[in-house]
């Protein structure tokens, strides 16, 4: 096993652990108070209405249109609809950038399938399935490289020239765009050198089998791989993982309008939270440095004058 393979495994391990930890961190945070924002697709009211529009809503069975959530979210993720509607000048560059990434990930998945069947001797020259995977790798990856490069370049220019963005853009943001841009560009050059992705597939196969890399790899291919390995390990530590907020902020915040109807799970969480100690220091809170719980301070009215008539 070579140095590159070890680096790739390590990078994958860092990604899985760091990204998993991030998901776990948010998934295990306390249930917050409701903070929904309308329209909520599962309410099924295209004008943005909610169950609060119905008299005695708590007596009625709630109907949640879960498919409506997908009808909203799929175009949002694939086509970045919010940016298309509300920030078109940025969308012209952000869309190809993201679509380029999605296509490259698709290409990588098909490269993996091709590498997997290759373990069993199925190669594009002798297997229709392997040939299909090879074609799909090309169909996804090559447009991905092109769109990604256009998007990254466009975003760099946009962030350099648009006065709305220059003040909020830091050196690290340019570094991230350049990093991904180089990944796309070198990937494209690798494809020019190896249009069938044979070397890449062989490398992937070596990763799947923990075996040696049999095909020689060009210098640019090594560079492309190192850029990828570095990015894979770096990515979970950056705000570029905004798919995390896209999931939690919509599904668990903006669309979380489940009313409290005495559900046992919700009740036990609320009881647990009300027992948390409070250490807020302002005088009116009267937390006594953590001696009091949320239940204590919320049920105390420091100003109540029992004799008031």
């Amino acid at each position: 096993m070579g140095f590159l393979q070890i680096l790739t495994y390590l990078s994958g391990l860092v990604f899985v652990i760091a990204f998993g930890a991030k998901l776990l961190k948010y998934a295990t945070m306390p249930m917050h108070v409701r903070w929904e924002l309308y329209p909520i697709p599962h309410e099924g009211k295209e004008w943005g209405g909610s169950f609060y529009e119905e008299i005695d809503h708590w007596k009625k069975v709630r109907h949640k249109d879960h498919m409506a959530q997908y009808r909203f979210m799929v175009p949002e993720i694939l086509f970045i609809r919010a940016l298309h509607e509300d920030n078109r000048p940025l969308w012209y560059w952000s869309f190809p950038f993201h679509m380029g990434l999605y296509l490259c990930i698709g290409g990588l998945i098909f490269l993996g399938f091709g590498a997997f069947v290759q373990i069993f001797g199925m190669v594009p020259e002798n297997s229709a399935l392997a040939s299909l995977f090879q074609s799909l790798t090309t169909v996804f990856a090559v447009p991905g490289y092109i769109l990604g490069t256009i998007g990254a370049l466009g975003l760099i220019v946009k962030r350099t020239t648009d006065s709305n963005l220059t003040d909020v853009t830091a050196g690290i943001d340019f570094m991230n765009l350049i990093w991904l841009g180089l990944l796309f560009v070198t990937g494209f050059i690798v494809w020019l050198q190896d249009p069938g992705f044979n070397v890449s597939r062989a490398y992937f196969q070596s990763l799947l089998t923990y075996g040696p890399m049999k095909e020689p790899m060009s210098a640019i291919h090594v560079v492309n791989l190192l850029i990828f390995i570095g990015f894979w390990a770096y990515f979970p530590f950056t705000p570029m993982t905004h798919m995390v907020s896209k999931y939690f902020m919509w599904d668990k915040v903006k669309w979380d309008d489940d009313p409290n109807r005495g559900d046992a799970g919700m009740d036990s969480k609320i009881k647990k939270y009300l027992a948390y100690p409070v250490t807020w220091a302002a005088v009116h809170i009267d937390s006594q440095g953590g001696k009091k719980t949320w239940a204590d301070i919320a049920t105390t009215n420091p100003w109540e004058n029992k004799d008031q008539k």
Binding site: H32, P239, V253
Partner: peptide
Amino acid sequence: NWTFLQPLMLSLEYCAKCQT
């Protein structure tokens, strides 16, 4: 801050600086 911790932390971490 159990009341708002999750949306706060997500909002602090994930601004894409797009100015939309």
